[in-house]
Amino acid sequence: MELNVRDLSVSLGGASIVNKISLQVQEKKFVGLLGPNGCGKSTLLKSIYKVIKPDEGQVHLSGTDLLKSSPKAVSQLMGVVGQFNDLSFDFTVREMVMMGRTPHKKLLDADNAADFRIVDEAIRKVGLEAYSSRSYLSLSGGEKQRVILARALAQQPQFLVLDEPTNHLDVKYQLQILNIVRSLNIGVLAALHDLSLAAKYCDYLYLIKKGKVAARGEPKEVLTRERIADVFEVECEIYDIPVTGGLGIAYLASK
């Protein structure tokens, strides 16, 4: 599945948040959205997964026009791990993950053996087998996030949208979540806040500043000293990490 976003503009309460952004996620690529708080990353993602109506622009997932399709049709193709996953009422982990089957269910369909298999598989993938009958609200932030990821996996999506999926998580779980996502081998569009993680996991990056694409390309092309100073307003040095050969970022001080 290929995601194509063309000239997408979103304004909230009269203020323009996203300004004619175009981006593309090619087949099975992991694409990262980077940018400071308030640059419009989340708003952009929300209008892709239909929570916010954009003013103009087009969003296509392979042959499907997402903006013109029903939420149900979209949810059968695309899974979303959002930022806010607090509940007012409690469910068990398994019940939460089972909700991921909703897009594939008619009103009166019961959960069948195949659903349980898919749900168990999703729970196994995020490593929460021992937790499946635990209450969701009793879990830690990282565990909750993994449950939400499992719910998205139970949708059996062909494309995944992640909005800062590793927020508030320990390093271990940040790596774990991104590892799971990458192992799915499907197209992913993720807003990320950690530049080194983005450099490590993403095939391609879009750097967003004030609702516009400031730079795009492979991590090494995009994450330069000058760009980071411009977009994030911090001084840093970029270096090759000797052990892994990855991209290292050392922050110096704010401007």
Binding site: V51, S75, P103
Partner: peptide, 9 residues
């Protein structure tokens, strides 16, 4: 929640 419900169709 409203947002998650939309993503579940």
């Amino acid at each position: 929640g409203d947002e998650a419900a939309v993503t579940l169709g």
